[in-house]
């Protein structure tokens, strides 16, 4: 691991600095995209449970589109294709964003909306697993739709889906690596760059592999804590 403390060819620092920078981008991208995914995914999951109207159909189209196209292709869509389809002035403005923002912003939107589709399906499943009487009871007490979902149904649905949500949270860190294809120098890209500069493959990829393992461990711990805190007295875990 002495590699980490050797100077980089640009002379600006050590390889450790590269790793830290890569890690920072990975974490920023994952946590930012997770925030987007939770908000959008919850909204889409909720509208998919509406009894009728156009909204559930829009929700379905959203989920099917984002789930059935590979993440990498979606990355290229946001990065290469969208600026071409927008009015020329906006397209140019996007393309001329300073690095790394020119890569980070499309990657953030892409990973956020991609993960949102998967969370939406879980939220929908959680809501549909609740007894019908819960919505009726909320209605009978005079709650409007927004109050019913916010205060009664979603808190229960999220408790049901916490284990699958844990899995999704761990996945989003791994999926950030796809952003290297549009030029974001996150953790995996950093390993590749160090390897290209030093040909010390084992060390370069080894360090990054260990970091991913640690991230997975911490992510799991965080979700585990949340699961414990959300557990209701008198009910075995995994149920509402």
């Amino acid at each position: 691991m002495s590699l980490l403390f050797e100077a980089t060819p640009d002379g600006a620092g050590r390889y450790l600095d590269w790793i830290i920078s890569g890690l920072a981008w990975t974490l920023c991208l994952a946590l930012g995209a997770w925030t987007i995914a939770l908000v959008v995914g919850t909204l889409v999951g909720v509208i998919r449970t509406f009894p009728d109207g156009i909204l559930p159909r829009i929700g379905r189209v959203y989920v099917e589109t984002f789930r059935n196209i590979p993440l990498l292709v979606q990355m290229f869509f946001w990065y290469f294709v969208l600026p071409e389809l927008l009015p020329a002035r906006i397209g140019m403005a996007i393309k001329q964003m300073d690095p790394p923002w020119g890569s980070f912003v499309p990657a953030l939107i892409c990973l956020g909306l991609f993960t949102a589709a998967r969370i939406a399906e879980q939220v929908r499943a959680g809501l549909q697993a609740l007894p019908k009487g819960q919505a009726q009871a909320a209605n009978a007490l005079g709650f409007d739709a927004s109050g019913m979902y916010r205060l009664i149904l979603l808190p229960q649905a999220f408790r049901i889906i916490l284990p699958t949500l844990t899995n999704e949270f761990m996945t989003i860190f791994k999926n950030t690596s796809v952003a290297l294809t549009i030029g974001l120098v996150e953790l995996t890209a950093t390993a590749r760059e160090i390897n290209e500069n030093t040909f010390r493959t084992f060390e370069a990829f080894g360090v990054v592999t260990i970091i991913y393992l640690l991230i997975a461990l911490i992510a799991w711990q965080v979700m585990h804590r949340i699961e414990q805190a959300a557990r209701l007295p008198g009910i075995a875990s995994g149920k509402a």
Binding site: T176, S177, V178, L180, T188, F205, T209, A216, L217
Partner: peptide, 12 residues
């Protein structure tokens, strides 16, 4: 181990 690291990293 395999489930903790990205596929791209395994490809490399």
């Amino acid at each position: 181990l395999m489930r903790s690291i990205p596929l791209i990293l395994v490809i490399f």
